[in-house]
């Protein structure tokens, strides 16, 4: 299990959503830019890595109760998407790393925990 607090102290993320509950935690990570794959695979214990910033990602995160979405390659969604995420209690982070390195770093971090 990794808490958001722990995560953001160990890797350089920018937190996009206000009112973040840093005690929220996740157990595994799923990386995909294909919404149908994410729909099949993310769950309440998953952090989801994607470059997709379209509002539809929130629909999926919300249905599957995925607590954290991490945008790679420094992708940042529109303000309207960020506000909607805040309403839905989904935390949005962004990282300048591409998905490969971001996954590599997170994988190592999760294995160390």
């Amino acid at each position: 299990m990794m808490t958001l607090r722990n995560l953001i102290t160990k890797l350089p993320f920018q937190v996009l959503t206000n009112k973040c509950n840093f005690d929220v935690s996740f157990q595994n990570v799923y990386a995909s830019d294909l919404l149908s794959n994410a729909l099949a695979s993310v769950n309440p214990e998953t952090a989801w890595i994607t470059v997709q910033v379209h509002q539809n990602i929130l629909g999926i995160a919300s249905i599957k109760q995925c607590p954290v979405v991490i945008f790679s390659e420094g992708a940042v969604p529109d303000d309207s998407v960020i506000s909607l995420a805040e309403e839905k209690d989904i935390f949005l982070l962004t990282s300048s790393y591409p998905t490969f390195e971001l996954s590599g770093l997170l994988y190592r971090l999760l294995k160390e925990e």
């Binding site: 919404l35 910033v53 379209h54 539809n56 992708a75």
Partner: peptide, 17 residues
């Protein structure tokens, strides 16, 4: 960058980033 009007179908196939 990142703004897209591509239909979901296109994005499912890996286009419309």
């Amino acid at each position: 960058p990142g703004f897209t009007t591509a239909p979901e179908m296109a994005r499912q196939l890996g286009f419309g980033g």
